[in-house]
């Protein structure tokens, strides 16, 4: 099966639907695979020492989907060329307990599944154009500081500001 058919990437507006890990597991499942690793990111109740009531996720959808796809391709390339990978991230106003991100990676064996999933979620966290604004029980709100994005030079591959 072509690699592009073994990758699924989604941005889901929480106003339309919630993320469902069963969708991720169903997509990556294959009788040839004995290992599926699933990462679920969930809105937690405390952040920066403050009581959190929710997170607003802002997202640049088209580039986020392109980054998800490149992350999935890189994970498959690095850990198992036959693997399957699913990446979905929510946007909008999420409450404590809502799911923010689901990544699943399936391979013949568990080691590649764990490593592929880890590589994919780290790329989503550090490279995808997504921003979170935490809302606190005292009524305050704060954008997270985050990780700067740096473009590579198409000619040299070197990064530039």
């Amino acid at each position: 099966m072509p690699r592009e058919d073994r990758i699924a990437c989604h941005v889901i507006d929480i106003a339309d639907a919630a993320l469902d890990p069963r969708d991720a597991i169903a997509f990556v499942s294959d009788d040839a695979f004995g290992g599926i690793d699933v990462f679920i990111g969930r809105v937690r109740t405390r952040s920066q020492g403050r009581q959190c009531v929710g997170i607003h996720y802002d997202m640049f959808d088209p580039l986020a989907l392109a980054v998800f796809r490149r992350a999935a391709e890189a994970s498959i390339e690095a850990h198992d060329p036959q693997a399957r990978c699913y990446i979905a991230h929510a946007k909008g106003k999420l409450a404590v307990g809502d799911l923010a991100v689901v990544v699943a990676f399936a391979s013949a064996h568990r080691d590649a599944a764990f490593r592929g999933c880890r590589q994919a979620i780290e790329a989503v966290k550090h490279q995808a154009p997504i921003w979170k604004q935490e809302h606190f029980s005292d009524g305050g709100a704060a954008w997270s500081d985050g990780t700067p994005l740096v473009a590579a030079d198409a000619a040299t591959g070197r990064e530039g500001a």
Partner: peptide
Amino acid sequence: TLLHPRTPLPADGRLALLPPVSGG
């Protein structure tokens, strides 16, 4: 894609300004 400093701007002039990211 992200644009490197030397990259020409797209003909349609449509750009996005991306502060440090915090997904996941």
